[in-house]
Structure formats: C-alpha cells, structure tokens
Computed example of a mutant assay.
Amino acid sequence: MPAKDIYHDTVKNALIKDGWTITDDPLSLKVGKKDIFIDLAANKLLVAEKKDKKIAVEVKSFIGTSEIEDLKNALGQYILYEKVLRSKLSERTLYLAIRKDIFDGLFSQEIGQILLSDDYLKIIIFDPETEMITQWIN
C-alpha cells in the first residue's frame, strides 16, 4: 500500500467536519492483476435529494520542486483513477484535493483556467490550518 500524502489526515478531518462519513481509507480497487489505492472514499446523505452522495478523494500536496511537475503527476493519476473508478464503482465521483494556496496560485493562471474550462476536473480546495473545505469545484 502506498504512503499517505502529508495532507491525508487534514483532508479526512475536513471531510468529516463537512458532514461526510469516511467509508474507505484507502479505497482499494482491483484492476486485473493490479491494485489501485485512492486515498479516501466518503458518503454523505443529502436529505433534500433523499439520496446518498458517494465520492472518492485523491489528496495531493504539491510540495515538489516544480508545481508543473506536481500538476502533471496529479493530473495523470486523476485521469487514471477517474477512468478506473467509472468502470468499477460508477456511483462514486472522484475529486482531487489540493490546498487553497496551490489552487489560488496555479488555477488563477492561464494553465489552471485551461484545466477548468471543460468541467472534467473536480477539485476539493482545503485550508490546512483550519482543516476545512473552502470550495468545491464540480
């Protein structure tokens, strides 16, 4: 099993504070002979809609020497996990969890705007100090 991201527990706590129930830590998926581990899976009962919303969350710290390299790695992992999740557990929606300062820095620039333009990438933005989710990008 892979090592946890340094913000793994921070995001887990933020999801719990936001009313989510953590169901898997990590979410393990078998693809043929390969194992894939997505950091977290959570459920939340949406009373108004009378249904259970299910998500999977991949946490990324962006602490490498290059934000662009970290972004490439995160996006590659997101695409892989999203496609596997869609084929194995289609009721779950995958989110990439990143810190607010990383989102504000990268996604306010042209490169980030390009990534958000087609609504494919789903992001949870969190504040590591308060362990709170500050924004959902659907």
Score class of each variant (00 low, 15 high):
M1Q: 09
M1A: 11
P2M: 00
A3C: 10
I6G: 09
Y7C: 09
D9A: 11
V11E: 02
A14D: 03
G19Q: 06
T21H: 15
I22W: 01
T23C: 07
T23G: 06
D25H: 08
S28G: 12
K33W: 09
K34V: 07
K34Q: 11
K34W: 06
I36A: 13
D39I: 04
L40C: 02
L40M: 02
K44C: 01
K44R: 09
L45E: 08
L46R: 15
L46A: 15
A48F: 11
A48I: 12
K51M: 09
I55S: 06
I55P: 05
A56H: 01
A56W: 03
E58K: 11
V59G: 00
V59Q: 00
V59R: 00
S61C: 03
F62W: 07
I63L: 14
I63W: 07
G64K: 06
L71N: 04
L71E: 04
K72T: 14
K72L: 14
G76V: 00
L80K: 15
Y81G: 01
K83N: 15
R86L: 13
S90H: 13
S90N: 14
S90Q: 11
T93L: 12
L94N: 02
Y95P: 06
A97H: 04
I98P: 05
I98N: 06
R99S: 12
R99M: 09
K100Y: 02
K100W: 05
F103L: 03
F103E: 01
L106V: 10
L106D: 04
S108M: 07
G112M: 03
G112V: 01
Q113Y: 03
I114E: 13
L115E: 05
L115S: 06
D119R: 14
L121G: 00
I125Q: 00
I125N: 00
F126A: 04
P128M: 00
E129M: 13
E129K: 13
M132V: 11
I133N: 05
I133G: 01
I137M: 04
I137R: 08
I137L: 10
N138A: 10
N138I: 08
